[in-house]
Design a protein around this nucleic acid. Structure first.
Length: 308
DNA sequence: AAAAGTGTCAACCGCTATTCC
DNA sequence: GGGAATAGCGGTTGACACTTT
């Protein structure tokens, strides 16, 4: 198929580009859009899937009136529009799980993503390529090398575990404190409800977001990258920092679903996560915290540079 | 303030596997 | 059984935002 690309000036939708498919049959010529999705396209796709469900994506694209390939529609739906998709920084738990699963399975992104609720293979892949490979580069080695593996096992992962533990300890303390405060106000005055109602309103408005996420993107945000970037907290690991209930804009249940380290029990990673912790507890040689003497990365490297 | 460099991530590409006819 | 269509996967690219000089 010969394809001639041109910028979308002639297109009804802004930006992006269109492709003209040159076919022997002129009647078959059609315009297909590519590039960033618009709000209108998102609405069309989401609305159609909501009404009719997922199906054959090429047919769906046509039926929905989208000038996109089925492949493009599928990708947009899976990576962005599908309910439950999460965006934003990876929590320390997620980072740890990615490191662990990648060490077992390699670049099996979809398989790894399947263990990270709400995360897509694309996001996991991007995380690996941008963050993890960057550290490997700093070490002057390849991500597949023994050196990198050792650094990951002896430095990175133990510190992620430390961080997670610290977060959970803080969360437990905060939850206890909140409980006590609640009891105090409950006893002292019926107006304690104000405490809970003072939570930011956008928590419910963005049910798919993680706890650190800002309000829903406004209509001018098209691809999602803009708002996710804007919403990204400046401090590392902030996405897990809804450990204090006061700082979390979502309910406890949402927090759990979103992987936040709230004080209460259910863990989003279930089996994989417990396996990991079990290994951490029983395999000191791999996860030992005392093996940081060979300092390829300084502590500053580990914690000052973003691991997310 | 502007240019250059860097990081991030959505979207696309090409390939393989699976399903359908 | 075989070919076409579709789904799914991993790799790559390009645009944009941010940082550094």
């Amino acid at each position: 198929m010969d394809a001639l690309w041109k910028q979308g000036s002639s297109c009804d939708w802004p930006a992006a580009a269109t492709v003209i498919i040159n076919d022997d049959d002129a009647a078959a010529e059609e315009l297909l859009r590519r590039g960033p999705w618009t709000v209108d396209e998102d609405a069309l796709l989401a609305g159609y899937v909501a009404a009719h469900g997922e199906g054959r994506w090429n047919d769906l694209a046509r039926a929905a009136g989208l000038r996109r390939t089925g492949k493009s529609c599928r990708l947009r739906w899976l990576n962005y529009l599908r309910p439950g998709v999460r965006h934003g920084d990876f929590t320390p738990r997620e980072q740890l799980l990615i490191l662990d699963l990648h060490s077992r399975w390699g670049n099996r992104w979809s398989k790894i993503a399947a263990h990270l609720p709400g995360r897509t293979d694309n996001e996991v892949k991007n995380y690996w390529r941008t963050r993890v490979q960057k550290h490997a580069k700093q070490l002057g080695c390849d991500v597949g090398s023994h050196r990198f593996h050792d650094a990951m096992m002896n430095l990175w992962m133990p510190r992620l575990l430390e961080r997670i533990h610290a977060d959970e300890t803080a969360a437990a303390a905060a939850a206890t404190a909140a409980h006590n405060v609640s009891r105090y106000y409950s006893a002292a005055s019926p107006s304690h409800e104000l405490l809970s109602s003072s939570q930011p309103a956008y928590g419910n408005a963005a049910p798919m977001g993680n706890c650190a996420r800002a309000p829903s993107p406004d209509a001018s945000s098209v691809t999602g990258s803009s708002w996710s970037r804007e919403a990204s907290p400046p401090s590392q690991f902030q996405s897990s920092s809804c450990s204090t209930m006061a700082g979390c804009s979502t309910s406890t249940e949402q927090c759990q679903n979103n992987g936040c380290s709230s004080a209460t029990s259910v863990d989003m990673f279930d089996e994989s996560w417990s396996e990991l912790l079990a290994r951490a507890n029983h395999d000191d040689t791999e996860f030992g915290l005392g093996q940081t003497g060979d300092n390829w990365w300084s502590l500053e490297d580990i914690w000052e540079q973003p691991l997310y």
